[in-house]
């Protein structure tokens, strides 16, 4: 995917900047972008280490068995060919819980950890497995109970009722997630060799 998108993004940007005389902006943005990649990585590094460590503890306790039982039907439906004793099962579960609780900083590290475990079970290491596809789509669906960031933004801009958006966000998120899951199931079916 990025083998095509990445060069296209760069080529159209630079050509357009030449035509419109914005080339100085592009030049500056190159330096700014590498710098912000470093900043994001440093933030992510601390968070990923912390949550990988916390998750490792959780997976050794009985907490994980409790959630495994509660979420079993949902995970069975979304990830039909996953082994419920595997480490990837625990990681997927913790990722879903972190997403729902709105632990944005924890959800990505836990998701990456789940990808790591799923790759160990993956037969073709160059291609996304069915379970990886479903995990990615769930993580693009923004499944949180309370959209805290956007409520904070509304509050800071002086809304008379900042939390009013919660219900519309739920409806919209759920519809988006359902469509995402259906499409993923269809794509999985037609791209399986």
């Amino acid at each position: 995917m990025l083998n095509i998108l990445w060069p296209i993004f760069i080529i159209i940007s630079i050509i357009y900047a030449f035509i419109s005389g914005n080339i100085a902006n592009i030049n500056n943005s190159i330096f700014e972008s590498t710098e912000s990649a470093i900043n994001v990585t440093i933030t992510l590094l601390g968070m990923t280490c912390l949550w990988s460590g916390i998750m490792e503890i959780a997976s050794k306790t009985k907490i994980i068995d409790f959630f495994a039982k509660v979420l079993h039907p949902v995970i069975r439906f979304l990830f039909p060919n996953i082994n419920s004793d595997s480490k990837s099962y625990d990681n997927i579960m913790m990722n879903i819980i972190a997403n729902i609780l709105g632990l944005g900083n924890a959800a990505t590290p836990l998701g990456l950890k789940a990808m790591n475990e799923l790759q160990k079970e993956n037969k073709n290491k160059d291609v996304l497995s069915d379970n990886m596809m479903m995990l990615i789509v769930l993580n693009t669906a923004s499944l949180q109970i309370i959209p805290t960031t956007i409520i904070a933004l509304r509050s800071s801009l002086g809304s008379s009722n900042p939390t009013m958006i919660i219900f519309p966000v739920w409806v919209s998120t759920i519809c988006a997630a359902i469509v995402g899951i259906i499409f993923t199931k269809i794509i999985i079916k037609y791209t399986r060799n």
């Binding site: 990445w6 940007s13 630079i14 357009y16 592009i26 972008s33």
Partner: peptide, 16 residues
């Protein structure tokens, strides 16, 4: 992240 940020940064700053 480096690759992605540079390409997205170009998209944004070029005005396209």
């Amino acid at each position: 992240l480096v690759g992605l940020f540079v390409a997205i940064g170009m998209l944004r700053s070029s005005g396209i």
